[in-house]
Design a protein around this nucleic acid. Structure first.
Lengths: 260, 260
DNA sequence: CGACGAAAAATGTTCGAACATTCCGTATTC
DNA sequence: GAATACGGAATGTTCGAACATTTTTCGTCG
């Protein structure tokens, strides 16, 4: 009954460190935008917010720096990697290049198991894409771009499955990193907007890939990624009015509505 | 006179944290092989060795994980990323792909300043390549593959300069990461072996690149990277006898000759 | 003798106090 | 009034003790 062990603050699975669970929470909050881009990440405030000490926070922030989601400067702490058009342009460019490369190699080398993996990933994405938007269990429909773990996982898994046979776990990791970066911009757009043609695009990419039509698959993929980036551009134009930009730059974590 | 401030253990520049300097030292020792591949990195031992507490060590290890030089497992600490043929093969493959991509884009987009950057980088590499081997100031000629900061910096800078105009700092970072990985294998070979044709290869790559002969430059680059990988394969065959492999896997830091 | 298991050692992790630096408002000077 | 100097508050960094888990050791049992 005395579940009040010192290193066990409720939200922790077996064999997982506080640093890992805090990393997951922080990552979620950053990608989702709950912690605004550009804001300072102060160790003390974060510790208070997530209910842990300095060490796990620092560890988590280091891992986020690994993902490129936060930046670190000696003696000046951590900052959420800012969002702007120049960055989005570079991220999109890089993402297209790397995905084209990985997709070509993957289609070259992929076997039957690889094809089946794509089909399964697409199927799971289909199921969740339609059921997720009606998620009214929490009644937080006012939250515009609320994070949806299932949908996120399925979307990520589908994109990963396409290139999973490329023959380089390094390249896969780089592509996933660019996916994360890109996803931060995509989440700026309202779900209603971004839900639009994405699913059809995914289906076409899958079909061309499995048909081993390399050039068509690559072309569809590039268009898909560019269209995704468009969502980010539009959202940046709308959402980042000067006032909000300043607010994002200045606001620290205490300005964020606390959600546990 | 009282230079005995608590957070100032001699080897520290202004504005630099202990974590940063420890990161640099550890990185050096790992790439150089002073800390053997596959060995466990125990926070307490490292702290004693580098004269710092747990926090900077942990921070440094996290940054090394960012570089892919160490691996981390929850509750089981950090390990130097092991060296083996399968990894070398994948690293080489990925490195060739990414460098080809970056070199093509760089030649497309590069301007005069980019060309001059290459020429300067090559010049610096030339100067150091001939002067470095005769470095007898420390008299440690018995150290086979001793780390040479100047040469290392120049070599890295030359490879970076070729692709610096590719238009993506992300891609540049990924290429640098693959450079580091590859360099660990290259350093397994004796300097006398690896000093061989490398310099001529660098010159040919530079010439083809500046002449904007894309296909030739890419071909030379790929051959260069593959030849570099060959050094690693040979060294792995020689150096990694089963006995040594076991020793490397088992030995912790205390087995390493202490050098400060 | 080997399998199993409990105690002990070693190691990874977390905490909060203490220290160092930066940031920012205020006062001083010219 | 602007530039500079000062000083306190806020924040980043480091330390070592304390705690949790893993690994090793060693005794016991079958």
């Amino acid at each position: 009954m005395t579940n009040k062990r010192k290193f066990d603050p409720a939200t922790r699975r077996a064999g997982e460190t506080l640093a890992s669970s805090t990393y997951a929470s922080l990552r979620r909050d950053i990608i989702d935008g709950a912690i605004p881009a550009g804001s300072q990440l102060r160790v003390r405030h974060l510790g208070e917010r997530y209910g842990v000490g300095f060490s796990p926070i620092r560890e988590a922030l280091n891992r986020l720096a690994r993902d490129g989601l936060v930046r670190q400067v000696d003696l000046r702490g951590f900052t959420v990697t800012p969002l702007n058009r120049a960055e989005l342009e570079e991220i999109t460019r890089t993402r297209c290049w790397l995905n084209e490369l990985a997709l070509r190699k993957s289609i070259e080398r992929g076997d039957a198991a690889w094809e089946e993996g794509i089909v399964i990933a697409f199927h799971r994405l289909s199921r969740i894409s339609v059921s997720a938007p009606v998620n009214g269990s929490e009644g937080d429909s006012n939250a515009i771009s609320r994070f949806n773990p299932e949908n996120d996982t399925a979307h990520r898994a589908f994109h990963a499955s396409l290139i999973s046979a490329c023959g380089s776990s390094w390249l896969l990791g780089f592509c996933e990193q660019m996916f994360d970066q890109s996803d931060r911009y995509r989440r700026l757009a309202k779900p209603s907007v971004r839900q639009g043609r994405q699913h059809d695009e995914h289906r076409l990419i899958m079909e061309a890939t499995i048909a081993r039509d390399v050039d068509k698959a690559v072309d569809l993929m590039n268009r898909h990624l560019l269209r995704t980036a468009e969502l980010g551009y539009m959202a940046l134009g709308e959402a980042m009015s000067p006032a909000q930009a300043v607010a994002a730059a200045m606001s620290s974590l205490e300005a964020v509505p606390a959600e546990r």
